[in-house]
Design a protein around this nucleic acid. Structure first.
Lengths: 225, 225
DNA sequence: CGCCGTCATAGGCGGATCGCCTATTCACAG
DNA sequence: CTGTGAATAGGCGATCCGCCTATGACGGCG
């Protein structure tokens, strides 16, 4: 186990925590700092803060939530890896893994764990990722292996799987009652880009009107809560 | 301040924490137990566990998340109040308050705070609710006061009560994913008329954008089974 | 009975948005 | 190296939105 590559002095692996809920940051910090081999070197409550903190503190591992206000967590993963290639990222989300984990791992994360995991599971995930492994639940890994095995009962799965990451993100925003313009502002895009995404979503999911698409987006977001 | 009614021995106000994310529970516990006048008497990670824990530990206050798996922070509020009438409940949600706070308060909660609040704000909310007050953000209270300012022919029923028959009809059509034009065609009206109804609905229900109104319409239609 | 508030209807108008088309860049697969 | 798809965004005409005004109908009220 050679975890201490970036922490020559302490011998502890340094971790950057990213979550927009302070209480969650406190909870993680409490748990992690109680471990002899781990230490929290920085925390951040937003994507920009996370990028900045990652640049200065050079953590061995970043643990991040997926859904932060504005600029989804997937973008943060990509940005972090663009700045610090090889950085290990463990996604810790409150959302059902089936819906987000695949995207997160494809974006470059090395693990996905749900927030309702208990301490030991959580620490096991951290150490597995620090050791160069990929952490995911048994269910999820089964699903991934299944997908790689070539079995394709396509169509029975969610129609949303046809959407690209960006389209999916826009879809969710529409489901939250946001205007195209509001979404554009929040993602720092031109309204035109959002409208193109909207068009593609409509086409991929076979909706004839935007109102219909929005309704289904709202229903879908509802079903996630 | 007579907060210790149910905690004769310690003099501290006892709090039951409910959240399905253990890390969140840890963070809250850390903060609360550091206060001289507050103590966490129990935690629960599910609605049934919360009901059971509330019955045995008789807390002065319950702090609960709204969205737990198995559907229903709102149901938990109602169930808790059914078992322990007069119990004070502070909802601590990660969701935009505009979307859930009203429902939570109508269900009987005495406060609503977002998870990204900092410690002092959080403690202020706890103490305010323990003292018999109602805690909500300035924005939210402004919205509530605004809504109650010009209307109370009925004590407090559905917000849709304020809509005229025609407006309500239009509202439902929007909730079914219909376009303004489609609604106009179906009701043999000019699109302009429908748009005026839409404007009035937005005004009466205090929505700032049409997208927000449509989202709530969809949610309402959904809730009608 | 006349007055006022509300409802339902709808037109006007300027600016915003939609729907569709095209284009550039980039990444990745074949 | 070439093609496909994703992400970004501009153009443009038609449509829609948001706000204002207006008319007729109904219903309570002094």
């Amino acid at each position: 186990m050679n975890r201490a590559a970036h922490s020559p002095e302490s011998g502890k692996s340094s971790i950057l925590l990213v979550d927009d809920h302070r209480m969650v940051l406190d909870g993680y910090t409490l748990l992690i700092n109680a471990q002899p081999d781990l230490t929290v070197c920085a925390t951040a409550a937003s994507a920009p803060a996370a990028l900045s903190a990652a640049g200065t503190s050079r953590p061995d591992l970043v643990i991040t939530d997926l859904t932060m206000q504005g600029r989804g967590g997937l973008d943060l993963i990509k940005d972090l890896l663009a700045v610090l290639p090889g950085l290990r990222i463990l996604v810790c989300s409150m959302h059902d893994e089936m819906l987000y984990a695949e995207r997160a791992l494809r974006a470059g994360a090395k693990g996905y764990i749900m927030k309702d995991s208990d301490g030991p599971t959580f620490l096991a995930a951290i150490r597995k990722v620090l050791d160069g492994g990929i952490y995911m639940s048994a269910q999820l890994s089964a699903r991934v292996l299944d997908a790689f095995a070539g079995s394709r009962p396509r169509g029975s799965s969610s129609p949303m799987e046809k959407l690209s990451d960006r389209e999916f993100e826009v879809f969710r925003f529409f489901g939250e009652g946001k205007t195209a313009k509001e979404i554009a502002d929040q993602l720092n895009l031109s309204p035109k880009t959002v409208s193109v995404h909207r068009d593609h979503i409509k086409e991929k999911l076979n909706y004839t009107t935007s109102a219909e698409m929005i309704r289904e987006a709202v229903r879908w977001v509802e079903s996630q809560n």
